[in-house]
Design a protein around this nucleic acid. Sequence first.
DNA 1: ATGTTC
Length: 483
Amino acid sequence: MPAPKEIKRISEVVWEIPETYKKGMLVPARIYATKQLLDSMDEGVFEQVTNVACLPGIQKYALCMPDGHWGYGFPIGGVAAFDFENGVISPGGIGFDINCGMRLVKTNLTIEEVKPKLKQLVDLLFQTVPTGVGATGFVKLSNSQFDEVMVKGARWCVEHGYGWKEDLERIEEHGAIKGADPSKVSKKARERGIDQLGTLGSGNHYLEIQVVDRIFDHNIANAFGIEQEGQIVVMIHCGSRGFGHQIATDYLKVFLDAMKKYGIPLLDKELACAPIDSPEGRDYYSAMLCAANMAFANRQVILHRVREAFEKIFKKSAQDLEMHLVYDVAHNIAKAEEYEVDGKIKKLLVHRKGSTRSFGPGHPELAEIYRDTGQPVIIGGSMETGSYLLVGTKRAMEETFGSTCHGSGRTMSRHKAKKEINYNQLVKQMEERGIYVRSASKSGLVEEAGVAYKNISDVVEAVDRAGISRKVAALRPIGNIKG
DNA sequence: ATGTTC
């Protein structure tokens, strides 16, 4: 679908829809994309990103990344920052899967060492990491322990034997965001979440064995623990499961009433929101952070299982296999961060929905190990086409509220993929190309076929050219476990 | 994404 005729080209990969496009827009909308990616975006993206530009307290621009596509209220690939004093918080700008994110683990193994044992390894991981809709985990929690998980996130896991102390400095916000309040979480959300720690889920969530295919920046790759092409790494993609989903559902309902109360105009029910500085807004923020911390804990427990599986198959300790965490990033979340707006430093609530934080070198919030390089940015592609490791930049701080893209973005609906792609053929084709896959459901697998997604290299090229993150390494899948 | 439709 073509972009609206009002769109202006700002640079090779930045496009702007002016405030005059639609009544009520408070700021322009900006889309980061090559001409080719822009032309392939669905019309919904332009409608939604300009709707977001109408929300109270929005700062500078409503943004969309090159992997943008139509989503619930806000586009997926969306970034929007709101003033804490007069702005809003919106579940649609965060996503149902609160703190859906990516985690990357390195090893010192090479493809030659792993290939003979790949099937054994993938089969073991498929057994030990619960996968699929409704999956429950092996960590049994009491209600008060679950409260602790909501507040302490990955730190709770490390204190209880699921991981290494050093893991915590390699997670966004050290795996525990301050401000989570379990009393703001409904009984229903608690019931759905309490047995879901350490589970992968379904849809596009996966656990993948990958090989470093190409290194673009050797210095930064080395600082991230990526030493050579042919090295084996493991990528984990999942979020807060039914727990975060229920919290989003609960507060969407609360916010529809709150909007009337606060006199916020309703453009679209899916844009339900509340003032950040209101009882409803503060409650959702505190509950949302419970889900964010649960998701960090979820990925931490899965990492523990991954280390155990490698130890069993390769008969060496995870320490000896140098299975250090590279990083863990959220790509569905809202964060309190400071940015310069009109020459003043302001505290903003940055909504990232299908968008990754991309803090550059020197940012005070980064752990010392990544202070000089900028943070690692983990971009998941489809299970067939590969993934990327990037690094954050100062330019992202200036242009995109410290944000970049998150993945490929679908081009084919799940429904269409199910109709057009044959399961057995897909598995055979993947096996011929050296990718061994185990999946909880046949339809779940065909929905995630590579042809159903945008070309990840095009997306990464666009953010690299825009300078809002830089390519460090390309990763290629060899084994995949999915929901 | 999701005990895949409250």
